[in-house]
Computed example of a mutant assay.
Amino acid sequence: MNQTLAVWILIVFSVAAANLPFLSDKVFGVLKTSNPAGKSGFLVCAELLVMYFVAGLLGFAFESALSNPFLLGWEFYAITLCIFLVLGFPGFVYRYLLK
């Protein structure tokens, strides 16, 4: 796998992972909740945070496979979390603002 393909796979996965908590009433798209009204806001935030870590692990796996991984500080993780939240904005709009 070359670097360009790895970057595109990571971008597409990140967009899908950031929008999944908002587009599905099931937890991680698989588990049904006991609440008939759907997922709570806390559960959506927790699911979004877990998906952020999964996307980060996928990115780290790609980086490790293609080159030597770099040591990253807290600033990198703060910025990537903000970018991940921005990627999830279309799902937020669909779930809370359009309905």
Score class of each variant (00 low, 15 high):
Ala17Tyr: 07
Leu20Gln: 04
Ser67His: 11
Ile79Thr: 08
Pro36Lys: 08
Ser24Tyr: 03
Lys39Ile: 08
Pro21Thr: 12
Ser40His: 07
Val50Met: 00
Ser14Gly: 05
Ser40Thr: 13
Leu10His: 15
Gly29Thr: 04
Leu23Phe: 11
Leu57Tyr: 12
Asn35Asp: 10
Asn19Glu: 07
Ala65Thr: 13
Pro36Gln: 06
Gly29Cys: 06
Ala78Cys: 13
Val15Trp: 00
Val93Ala: 13
Leu5Cys: 09
Tyr77Gly: 00
Ala37Leu: 09
Tyr94Cys: 06
Phe70Pro: 08
Asn35Pro: 03
Cys82Ile: 15
Gly41Tyr: 05
Phe13Ile: 14
Leu66Gly: 09
Lys26Ala: 10
Asn2Trp: 02
Ala16Asp: 05
Leu97His: 08
Leu20Glu: 05
Phe62Met: 03
Glu47Asn: 03
Val93Phe: 10
Glu63Asp: 12
Gly38His: 11
Ser24Lys: 03
Asn35Tyr: 03
Leu10Thr: 12
Leu98His: 07
Ser34Gly: 15
Phe76Gly: 01
Leu66Tyr: 03
Leu58Asn: 07
Ala37Gln: 11
Ser64Ala: 12
Lys26Thr: 06
Leu20Ala: 11
Tyr77Phe: 05
Phe53Trp: 06
Leu97Asn: 05
Gly59Met: 04
Phe70Trp: 11
Tyr52Phe: 14
Phe70Asn: 13
Thr4Asn: 14
Phe92His: 06
Leu81His: 01
Ile9Tyr: 09
Phe60Ser: 11
Leu23Met: 12
Leu5Ser: 15
Asn35His: 03
Phe28Arg: 06
Val50Thr: 07
Leu85Thr: 01
Gly29Trp: 04
Ile11Tyr: 08
Ala55Glu: 00
Tyr52Ile: 05
Pro36Val: 01
Phe22Ser: 03
Phe84Asn: 02
Lys32Ser: 15
Thr4Glu: 12
Phe70Met: 13
Gly88Ser: 06
Gly73Val: 01
Ser14Asn: 02
Glu47Cys: 01
Ile83Tyr: 07
Pro90Leu: 02
Leu87Asp: 01
Leu81Arg: 00
Tyr94Ile: 10
Thr33His: 12
Val93Cys: 12
Val86Leu: 15
Val12Asn: 09
Gly73Asn: 09
Leu98Met: 13
Leu71Lys: 10
Ile9Ser: 09
Gly59Thr: 06
Ala65Arg: 11
Leu71His: 08
Leu48Ile: 01
Asn68Gln: 15
Phe60Met: 13
Val12Ser: 09
Phe89Thr: 15
Leu31Val: 11
Ala65Ser: 12
Cys45Tyr: 13
Met51Lys: 00
Gly56Glu: 00
Glu75Ala: 12
Ile11Cys: 11
Glu75Arg: 15
Leu66Asn: 09
Val12Ala: 13
Pro69Asp: 01
Val54His: 04
Leu71Phe: 10
Leu97Gln: 08
Thr80Ala: 08
Val93Ser: 09
Lys26Ser: 07
Met51Tyr: 03
Lys99Tyr: 10
Thr80Pro: 04
Leu97Lys: 10
Ser64Arg: 14
Phe22Cys: 02
Phe89Met: 13
Gly91Thr: 01
Asn35Val: 10
Leu87Thr: 04
Gly56Gln: 00
Val12Gly: 06
Asn35Phe: 09
Phe28Asp: 05
Gly73Arg: 02
Val86Asp: 03
Phe70Leu: 14
Gly73His: 03
